[in-house]
Amino acid sequence: MEGAVIEFHLDGRSGVSPYLQIVQQVRHALRLGLLDEGDRLPTVKEVVARLAINPNTVLKAYRELEHEGLVAARPGVGTFVTRTLADASLAAHAPLRQELRRWLSRARRAGLDDESIEALFMTTFRTAAREDIA
């Protein structure tokens, strides 16, 4: 059998639960085009043997991904990617990055240091997210 395309890693200090970290890493890889339709995710046994984590955690992450329609489990074979997230958004990355760069240089000229920029970005990001929900 062909080897898995990606490997997972866990950040113990992120405060994000391990299962969510796996879900995020798959989504991330899908977005960046690292994972394509038909690619096989590592088997539960492989993930468990590598990360020393509970198999139920991996199963839960894969179930979540399956629920989102991103992957499908084929019993006895493995879990395969069924949809990619890279499509249209990937094309929009370049212009957005350019705009963000321009915004960053404006912020620097206004006298903001790195920490202030990060804080401003995160608070704005969170407020916007909250307003979206509401």
Binding site: A49, A52, P55
Partner: peptide, 8 residues
């Protein structure tokens, strides 16, 4: 790792 693998 080995323990978890056996569990899986």
């Amino acid at each position: 790792q080995d323990l978890m693998e056996a569990v899986a």
